[in-house]
Design a binder for these strands. Structure first.
Lengths: 340, 340
DNA sequence: TTGTATGCGTTATCAA
DNA sequence: TTGATAACGCATACAA
């Protein structure tokens, strides 16, 4: 149903010059006589001409485009990081293409191929964990990929992010310091998600190092969502031994837990402490304000942009960047009640 | 820094067949002998070949791509609608390209051109209001655009959305029914934003039809954000005559107001009622749960996808779709206190 | 079933 | 300062 769009050729005819001149007019205006330029530009205007990106990319062999693939857009934390990433790219004349995967590896693979096919000069990926085949593919295509949202000291692949395990361990230590020994964890799905599993590890490490038995940690894995957090909370409090503190894999799950606690008339933090992870705005407006782990999302996006652009443009090797996180104590974490 | 990616030609050589055969293998596998196919496919695998989208689009003269341009990704409501839109597109073999504008018209124009240049077969745009020049450009390019998030009965341009004015008017009527006469409105910026101005109109209409003076409405325009809502609330309650009910242009602003009310020890809804618009998840987890206008975001995205795909693929004319909204009474709206 | 040849809309090289 | 013209990577009509 699309009717043919005007081409360089059409403009050239309308302005009675060659296509080469039109191209120059658009790309190097000062290489062409003012008179000719005016003629060409007005033809461009009146025809509503717009260069064909594909043809341009093919002829010029570069796109100044960088792709970003995130698990979901329905998550403020990715949205923020990306916004900063994009701003950084714009600063350097690059365009960002976003795609989301609904946390499904096969869709991620599809999106990676799609962005590569579209000529992305580089890719921003979340987390290390994916089919090695994909890394080989990117290698073959000569498309550099920057991993972000994680910093795994044990991985040889460079990344810009934070240490999910250490961050969660620090928070868990705090919780334990408050006297809690009956812990539970509402986790994001850990399969194919190194951030989620690292956070789980962090809690286990904290327990062990505090002399608790890591096996006593009650853990529920669930999908991303407020309702999901609520349901998980329900199960935790209804069946089995009641925890006195519940750590959550992210703020959204935590807020869901908080809501259900209110519905169940379970007082937070008097009856049970709840903590989150990410420190999105939601955490501050939750009631009571949520104790959580602060992650510098915008800073992360910005740094990732710098590193990737620098690599794509100048060939600077990608160097890992470790960003700091810190527990933010608000009101949902309190000392364990005597007798609990 | 990108090194050359393998091309159809490379694959053809590796498999010792012609490029045409490789192309067929990829696009119409059953038109080629199994033996040849296997040979080709393994060459594709081992080379890590991926078709060049630009070249493909140019040769095939279609992209099966649809662009979507939204004001911001940092807003759950757009995120949800888009997610549904994308799912619908996938169902029909289309790919979605997203871009965001930070609510800036000049960036929107830039993004529109960029997506058109990238060969988008169609575009999804938010709201009617933009430079007529842009509509002419799209016309010249033969790229159909579907307007969404609004349904303006007075506009000749078709759209899939809801009537922002009527929706807000209905909510304002409810508020007035509760006995409120001193109303205030925390609005998104109305310049270049027909949704925001329609909502303002809705409140004014409601006041007039209830015999109140629409000029008495105190109105503050502010940018999108929780903090922004908080600041606006502060101004409203600190300076000038105190309203007994505050309507907000969206849930995020409302939640900001709610937070500041708590900080100021102003009880909601006892001292002041607050209502939002959109009914994003946030509204349910806010405390107290927020009274707001429900908008069927996912349904809207889905329908928009259907309509646009049907138009692009089959030439079906775009027909407007009016989606229903309804006020959701939760806990932040209560009858006005006697003596207020 | 497979191969040959042409065109898609640009950029860039080389002449004029 | 301008104009021919050869790539660029792929799909496809046509031929074999």
């Amino acid at each position: 149903m699309k009717r043919p769009a005007p081409t360089l050729h059409d403009v050239a005819i309308a302005a009675s010059v060659s296509t080469a001149t039109v191209s120059r007019c658009l790309n190097f205006p000062d290489q062409v006589a003012k008179q000719t330029r005016d003629k060409v530009m007005s033809a461009v205007e009146s025809l509503g001409y717009s260069p064909n990106f594909g043809a341009k990319a093919m002829a010029a062999r570069r796109t100044n485009t960088i792709g970003a693939i995130i698990p979901t857009m329905e998550n403020a934390m990715f949205a923020r990081g990306l916004e900063a990433f994009q701003e950084e790219l714009r600063l350097h004349g690059f365009t960002m293409l976003v795609a989301s995967t609904s946390y499904r590896p096969e869709i991620e693979e599809e999106q990676i191929k799609s962005l590569v096919a579209r000529g992305a000069d580089g890719l921003l990926l979340i987390g290390h964990e994916r089919d090695p085949e994909i890394y080989r593919f990117l290698e073959a295509q000569g498309v550099p990929a920057l991993i972000t949202w994680v910093f795994d000291p044990r991985s040889e692949r460079p990344s810009v992010g934070f240490d999910n395990r250490a961050a969660m361990m620090e928070m868990a230590m705090k919780v334990i310091e408050f006297g809690h020994t009956k812990l539970a964890f509402i986790s994001a799905v850990t399969a194919q998600n190194d951030r989620a599993s690292a956070r789980l590890n962090g809690i286990q490490n904290a327990m062990s190092s505090a002399g608790l038995n890591a096996n006593d940690l009650r853990c529920i894995e669930t999908n991303y969502g407020i309702e999901e957090g609520a349901v998980a909370f329900d199960r935790l409090m209804t069946n089995g031994p009641r925890p006195t503190a519940i750590l959550c894999g992210n703020d959204v799950l935590a807020v869901g837990a908080l809501r259900r606690a209110r519905e169940l008339k379970i007082a937070v933090p008097q009856d049970v402490s709840i903590v989150g992870f990410d420190d999105i705005e939601l955490a501050q407006v939750a009631y009571p304000p949520l104790t959580t782990v602060h992650v510098p999302h915008r800073e992360m996006g910005r740094r990732a942009g710098q590193v990737l652009v620098d690599h794509v443009k100048n060939g600077t090797p990608i160097k890992s960047v470790l960003l700091p996180t810190r527990p933010i104590l608000r009101e949902t974490l309190a000392p364990v009640k005597a007798g609990s």
